[in-house]
Simulated assay, not measured.
Amino acid sequence: MKLTDYMPVYRLRLRTERLELRLPDLDDLVALADQAAAGVHDPDFMPFLTPWTECEPIERGRRTLQHQMSVIAGISPERWMLPLVTVLDGEIVGMQEVGAADVKATREAHTGSWLGRAHHGKGIGTEMRAAVLDFVFNGLGADYALSASFEGNGPSEGVSRKLGYKADGIDHKVLNGVRRQDNRWRLSREDWEAHRKHEVAIEGLDAEVLAALGLGESEE
Rank of each mutant, 00 (worst) to 15 (best):
G216Y: 10
K197H: 15
E208Q: 03
G121W: 01
E59C: 03
E203V: 08
A37S: 13
D25I: 00
E78S: 13
P155L: 01
T86R: 01
L26Q: 11
V200W: 01
L23I: 00
H41L: 03
E157I: 09
V85M: 05
D171P: 06
R186H: 12
W52F: 08
T16W: 05
A105P: 07
L82I: 01
R62Q: 15
H67M: 12
V40A: 10
L3P: 00
E220H: 08
H41P: 02
N176K: 13
V136T: 04
I202D: 06
L14A: 06
R13I: 03
I124T: 01
T86L: 02
S113N: 10
E97H: 07
W52R: 02
A36K: 02
G94S: 09
M95D: 12
G152Q: 03
K2R: 14
T126R: 13
W80N: 03
D89G: 00
E203N: 13
C55T: 15
L12Y: 07
V98D: 11
G112E: 15
L23C: 07
W52C: 03
W52M: 05
A36V: 01
E220L: 13
G112K: 01
F150N: 09
V132F: 01
A100C: 10
F137I: 00
E219W: 14
I202P: 01
G154L: 15
M46H: 04
L213T: 07
D168M: 11
V85F: 04
G164A: 11
E199I: 08
I202L: 03
G177A: 15
M7N: 05
L19G: 12
A118I: 00
A211W: 09
A101T: 08
A145Q: 05
Y165W: 06
P43C: 04
D27F: 02
P77Y: 11
T50R: 07
D102R: 10
G214M: 09
R186D: 12
A109Q: 05
W80P: 09
V30Y: 14
E208R: 03
G139I: 07
S188E: 10
A142I: 06
S218E: 15
Y6C: 09
I92T: 15
L14F: 00
R15H: 10
L140Q: 13
F135E: 07
D168P: 11
S149Y: 12
V200F: 04
E78Q: 10
R60A: 04
G94W: 06
